[in-house]
Design a protein around this nucleic acid. Structure first.
Lengths: 233, 233
DNA sequence: CGTCGTTGTGTCGCCATGGATACAACCACC
DNA sequence: GGTGGTTGTATCCATGGCGACACAACGACG
């Protein structure tokens, strides 16, 4: 499906939302040294940009140090608070971007047991402990490729680690990238399990098609979602 | 800081964005059996809602099966495509929500080496392999609490697993929840490392204040961000 | 064959966002 | 003391999203 997942991140305080557009503006102020030049560079009107800064400052505190007059007419620069805000926003955006970019394998299963927020989901590849929604029996289980750790097939008994889920499988394919490799694992379930590891790991673990391997991932990093059809009345 | 992180998720195709508002509408159609009743229930105008459905269908394919006339006047129900779309959207939203909810520890460090998208970041707790931005030396390193696996202090040599990062630490605090526990670890760095594990793991690993323990996490699940101050010219 | 609650379609107007423009205030420098 | 490029502020206007409303089409059922 050629569906693109996207998002608009925001930081909120006192009902005021700091979004991508605001971040752009502050970055432009930082880059050009004045609100005027910033608005110009972004193709926005000065008046609106100025007002927006004031709005933001009412919620987030002083963001811009302004100087008026002088040989160069003055200018504006960011406060430390604005720097922090921008940093926080960048981190949030990067994290969201990670969600849309990292591959994940979706297994189908049914919840057979639940205690608190955790539950056990029975899948083709075996039982999986995961965070399950309060009321749902048929679920989809999404496991991020970067959340799975690989081990030698014979290694580490399950009790030795806090990763509660463990599959035994066979390497089907290794797609090596620059520094990162995508490993596709046959674990006896319909969709193969794709795992993201460093190339170093590919070597130390001797990952090649046909090799046996164990895959483990944490229950707390695995989320189950009610299976689509909301019309199951 | 009382900053709230938020987001608006969307699925996009052919430039048309399917957002939370659209999901609400489709769910209401499913629930009430007609577009009319759906719009009514959501306090929206029928005309706008109807047009929106048509817009969406131009990009995402048939979403609503309509019946006109009949004793009950007709009605609408969701197609399988709409169910899938809603499922996909719910998953996306849940995943984003996870990002804003799961705690993470942010370590400061400097990039000392880089190959491809990966790099080595030197931190107070030792070197960490992580996904690093192309140009940045001073970085913040965010590690999600649910991405860290715990092991007995003496266990598993590093080469045995694909988790390239390993810290040795001491349990400082265990906050037990319903089924999940938050473990705070002293790893010799300024912010303590918080880890999310199941209560089962707390028992099998004998996690209690003062206990020695090893924490490992994957390089591919660790992201570094340029340190805030964009004004470092 | 009329009824009734739908689905379609068109038109109007409200309102929020943001651009355009004008003008006052500022002030180091020449 | 004038100059120049800022920061403030006010006002008007264009646009888009959406509600309000009106009306045609539909078709099983009584």
């Amino acid at each position: 499906m050629d569906l693109d997942a996207g998002f608009d991140a925001r930081l909120e305080r006192d009902g005021v939302r700091f979004g991508a557009r605001d971040a752009e503006l502050l970055r432009a102020v930082d880059e050009h040294g004045s609100l005027n030049a910033a608005a110009e560079a972004l193709g926005r009107s000065y008046s609106r940009s100025q007002r927006r800064v004031v709005e933001l400052e009412e919620a987030f505190g002083r963001l811009v140090d302004r100087t008026r007059g002088g040989a160069d007419g003055g200018g504006s620069s960011l406060t430390a608070a604005a720097d922090r805000l921008l940093g926080e926003f960048a981190r949030l955006e990067a994290e969201f971007a990670g969600v849309t970019q990292v591959e994940e394998t979706v297994l189908r299963g049914t919840v057979v047991d639940t205690e608190g927020e955790l539950g056990t989901v029975e899948t083709d590849a075996g039982p999986v402990r995961a965070v399950v929604p309060p009321t749902a029996s048929a679920v989809r289980l999404a496991v991020r490729a970067d959340a799975i750790t690989l081990h030698p097939a014979g290694g580490v008994p399950e009790t030795e680690t806090s990763a509660r889920n463990r599959f035994r499988g066979e390497v089907r394919e290794v797609v090596a990238g620059d520094a990162v490799a995508r490993v596709v694992l046959d674990v006896g379930a319909d969709p193969d399990l794709t795992v993201l590891v460093t190339r170093t790991s590919v070597e130390t673990l001797d990952l090649a098609p046909g090799a046996p391997v164990a895959a483990s991932f944490k229950a707390t990093a695995t989320r189950a979602y009610p299976v689509e059809s909301p019309s199951d009345e």
